[in-house]
Every structure is written in C-alpha cells, then in structure tokens.
Design a protein around this nucleic acid. Structure first.
Lengths: 234, 234
DNA sequence: CAGAAAAAGATTGTTAACAATTTATGTCAA
DNA sequence: TTGACATAAATTGTTAACAATCTTTTTCTG
C-alpha cells in the first residue's frame, strides 16, 4: 500500500509560508532587529530547507517590505526611515478606524469571544512581565480586528502594516513602555461590545496616534544586529 | 574597454519588476483574462529571460493575488469569486474615500496638474472609443489618487486592489459600459480642486458603489469554468 | 465505437555545479 | 602601526541537468 502525500489545497508554497510566518513573528516580537542580515545559508540551516525555498521565502518577505534585498549582498531585515514610518501610520489611520467601526457594527458572538480572549492573554502577559509576549500580542490585536472582520485582504494588509510598525518602533521607539498600554485595546473592545461604532473608530485612531507620538526621530538609529539563532526551528 | 553594468540602486529585482508591471497592465486593460495559463516557457519567451526570473516574477504576482499557483500545474491568472469581490470592494471603501479626502486637503499644484491631465486622457480615450485604453485609464485614476498622496504603501495597495477589481469586472461585469463613466472621476477631481474633502470622500464612495452595483454574480462565470479540474480529486 | 489502461510528451519542482560579486584575510611598503 | 594592494574565502546569481508530476496521445479491450 502506497501512502501518497496529499496537498490539501492545490496551491504551492507550503514550507515557504512557514518560514515567512516565522520571520514575521520574530520581527513582531522584536527578536529580529532591523538591518540584521538573513543569509541564504542561515535560512537553509535554521529551517532545514534547500536554497531554492530559502530564496523564495526571502523574495516573499522582500515583496512585503519586511526584508530588503541588495544585489550580490543578500537580504537584510528592513530598516524603515521616517518617511516609511509616516506612510505606515498614515495608511493605518486610513484603514483601522474605519475597519474597527465596521467590526463594532457587524461582530458576532464568536468574534467577540476571540477578541475577549486575546485581551485576557494580553493581561496575563502584562502580569507576567513577559516583554516579548506583550509586544507580540499588542501587535496581533490589530491583526485580529481584521481577522474578525473576515476580510482576507485587509487581514494580510494589516499584518504587513503591523510588522512594519514593529520595525519602526524598534528603530525609533522612545523606550517607554507606554506604546504597549493594553488598556487602550481594552477600551476599544468595550466600544465594540457596546456596538458603538463611532467611539470604537475614535479610540482606534487615538490609539494609533499615541503609538505614533511615542516615536523619536531625532536621535540616530538604533542599530544592534542580533544573532539569528532564535529563529532555529523547534 | 569594458563596459560594466551599473545598478543604480542596490536592490535586485530589475527585470522581474518589468515582467510584473507588464502583466499588471495586461490584466488592468483586460488583455489577460482570468484563468489564463501563464506557463514558465511563455514568460521566458515573451520577455527573453531565463526560467529563474520567470518563476520569480510569477511568485511575486502570486503574492499579490494576481496569479494563482497550483502545485505541479503552473500559474494561472486569478479568477476571483464573489467573496473575493466583496473583500476587495470592502477594502477599497475603507481606504479610498478617506484617502481622497486627504488628497483634497493636501494636494498641491503639481498633483492637481497630474490629475487634470489624466482626466483629459480619459476624455480623449472616450472620444476615440478606445476600449482598452478607457479601461486601463479608468483603473489607473484610482492609483493616481494614491500616487498624488505620495504614500508608497497605499499606492502599492491600491494598485493591487485596482488590478483585482479589473479581474472581478472581467468575471462578473454586466457588460454595460456604465462602469467606465469617467464623469464620476471628473466630479471627484472637481471636489478635490474645490478642496471639499467631504464631498470628495462621498463621491469616491459612491463611485465605488456604482462599480460594485454593476456586477452580476447570478450568471455563471464568463470564462468557461474548467469543470474537469474542479472535479479532480486532490 | 466508447472507455479504460498504458505509453509518450510536456511542464513544473528540485538539486547541483558553475560564474560573478562581495567580503575577509594576508602581505608588503612607507 | 597603518594603508594600499593582492589573494583567498564566502556569498549570491545563474545555468543546466535531472526528477517528479501532470497532460496528451496512443493502444487495447469490451
């Protein structure tokens, strides 16, 4: 009897997406700093894949602005400048308040449960003072809003924006943990629970502006390239 | 004497982007229909590149939802379904009215000139009854709004949304040319010229809703659905 | 003739070797 | 010691060959 490997969906790109997601997560929880070099051999060894798949993963990451490819030099974690930061926050302020309002209007019990559980996780992480987890969950809250809206395109867009925001905070964050005040997330959830679209929208916008105000573009860039061993597969 | 090829910027991906842009344009002016197969050899011959670059271009197109990759079967121009269409229009209605309002507030003389010239091109194409040009320019107007806002991220996002919209219209368009009424574009431009952000936003939203209403999801897909491949057990 | 099975052909996926370029190392002179 | 220069090593870019899978054609059987 021959056991045949089945692709549940006809689409290719199985392992590449795992690599991309892993690097996404690492950037989101700031274990991968801007400008860190991601050599092909590193990816190959870390994930146990051939060079081809490593290159495809890096190309995908580059197409999403998470990684920068330089000719004959390799791939580096992106290091956004102030203009990049302005664009990202401008885009988020165009999208997220409106999206949050829509979620407040249309969310169902299942979506509310998902958001509530997420907020609880954030609280737990805060109590445990688990910084990486706090940062990761804080970003993922915004992606979860899009997920709950059941719009695949916006979910993907927001994942990209949030990841880039993580890089921006790594570059220009003022250090104060105020950017992670989860009570703002909680208040947004309360507005959604109350089906108050206007308030949810306003709170979302204010929240983004608070994050934006915590940035400091005056001082020179933080550049401390870290090791990539954290990426190593389970 | 040796002439050395210089890369003006350090980023790789020179020719791949040309291929991607060409296919983008072809989809936008509906020269490339949904479900059309894009074999590697076709790309190689059409653009005079090696298989590697063809594959990279197809991967980039797939990461943007313009092309669908199927394992061992190749790349096909995407064929959005109704859910995809809903997501795209939902996203556009979240983004474009807000973006158009911002443009109305902040546009400068140079931006106004660009928009005005574009509208003139649209009028010329209409008088010449050049259908492909009409369709292409009609879509590009929306991208131009983002370009004028000088937000690279949103420009890229809108280019993707507009291209997908073109595929959606190819699949579900009711055939009537009302979707191409450029007078709506002209009215949006007038609102922008008048610095009337509220009206510009409303007109942009109405315009998108008009396009949306011209779709007909009841009849079967225009492009003959390949039932054989749909029934194939995976 | 219809349908299924088998063979041939074409296309995609992967690997490995090679070429081109960059980066690191070593040598030598001032 | 420092700096320039040459060499060696390492990394990326490309090509070609091979393997695996799918598609088409042919052949065979009922």
């Amino acid at each position: 009897m021959v056991v045949q490997k089945i692709h549940e969906d006809g689409s290719s790109l199985g392992e590449e997406h795992k690599i991309v997601d892993r690097i996404y997560s690492a950037v989101m929880q700031q274990t991968l700093a801007p400008m860190t070099k991601l050599s092909e051999s590193t990816i190959c060894e870390s994930f146990g894949v051939g060079r081809m798949k490593a290159r495809r993963a890096l190309l995908l990451l580059a197409s999403q602005g998470i990684v920068e490819l330089r000719s004959n030099r390799g791939a580096f974690v992106a290091s956004p400048n102030q203009k990049d930061a302005d664009e990202v926050f401008e885009a988020r302020i165009h999208i997220e308040p409106s999206l949050t309002a829509q979620v407040a209007e249309r969310i169902d019990a299942q979506g509310l449960k998902a958001l509530t559980e997420h907020i609880n996780k954030e609280k737990t992480a805060h109590l445990a003072e688990n910084r990486q987890e706090i940062i990761r969950l804080s970003g993922e809250f915004h992606v979860l809003i899009a997920t709950v809206s059941e719009n695949g395109f916006l979910t993907r867009t927001l994942r990209e924006l949030v990841t880039r925001t993580s890089l921006i905070v790594a570059m220009f964050g003022s250090g104060k943990p105020s950017c992670c005040r989860d009570d703002e997330h909680e208040k947004i959830l309360e507005a959604i629970e109350a089906r108050d679209a206007g308030r949810a929208s306003d709170l979302a916008k204010e929240h983004l502006e608070h994050i934006r105000l915590d940035l400091d573009f005056t001082k020179s860039h933080k550049t401390e390239p870290d090791l990539v061993s954290l990426l190593r597969a389970d």
